[in-house]
Amino acid sequence: MTLTQRLIEATPDEVWDVLADGWLYPLWVVGASRMREVDAAWPKEGAEIHHSVGAWPALLDDTTIVEECVAGHRLRLTARTRPFGEAAVTLCLDPAGDQTLVTIREDVVGGPGRVVPRPVRAPLIRWRNTETLRRLAYLAERRV
């Protein structure tokens, strides 16, 4: 698993509010370009969001499903981008005073991406998730 962290100038509840709004997913997840549908139960276990990745007109429709949800603390997802594969993603929120240390652990778990050696794919995942956390911070810090 590739680990990426950022200290966000917002409380865990404020960061969680962004994660719990499935319609905001393409605003903070690098690669997601639009939302098509969000299950009413999001982000409870088993709930799905239906998103697209890429840029118009080359969009691929796919889903992300919640594998585990500990409200305000942890969200474990399986993010799909077929035909490229699936990723296991865990976001953890740890209080740090009036801030939040957000950790993303991610790795490819299915599809052609698994044949890319970990030393090659890990820096790419870390680069992507550094930007993802920057976007998440912008949203959480400005909702205060």
Rank of each mutant, 00 (worst) to 15 (best):
M1S: 03
L3S: 02
Q5D: 03
Q5F: 02
R6I: 08
T11C: 00
P12Y: 14
E14H: 09
E14Y: 03
V15D: 02
V15L: 03
W16D: 03
A20W: 12
A20T: 11
D21H: 07
W23V: 06
Y25M: 06
P26R: 13
L27I: 04
L27D: 13
W28L: 02
V30Y: 12
V30K: 08
R34H: 11
M35R: 09
E37F: 15
E37Y: 15
A40H: 11
A40D: 14
A41T: 14
W42T: 07
K44Y: 14
E45I: 12
G46V: 13
G46Q: 11
A47K: 09
E48F: 15
I49G: 05
I49R: 08
H50A: 08
H51L: 13
H51I: 15
S52I: 12
V53N: 10
G54W: 15
W56D: 04
D62Y: 14
D62V: 11
T63P: 00
T63Q: 07
E67W: 05
E68G: 00
A71V: 10
R76F: 10
L77D: 01
A79R: 09
A79F: 05
A79C: 07
R80A: 13
A87E: 11
A88V: 11
V89M: 02
L91C: 03
C92F: 13
C92P: 00
D94T: 15
P95I: 12
P95E: 11
A96D: 12
G97N: 08
D98S: 10
D98F: 06
Q99G: 00
T100V: 07
L101S: 06
L101E: 05
V102L: 00
D107T: 09
P112T: 13
R114S: 04
V120S: 06
V120Y: 11
V120F: 15
R121F: 15
A122C: 00
A122L: 01
I125D: 00
I125A: 06
W127F: 01
R128Q: 14
N129K: 02
T132K: 07
L133A: 08
R134M: 06
R135L: 14
A137Q: 08
Y138I: 05
Y138K: 00
Y138L: 06
L139W: 11
A140L: 05
A140I: 04
E141Q: 09
E141Y: 05
R142L: 06
R142G: 09
R142Y: 07
R142D: 04
R143M: 01
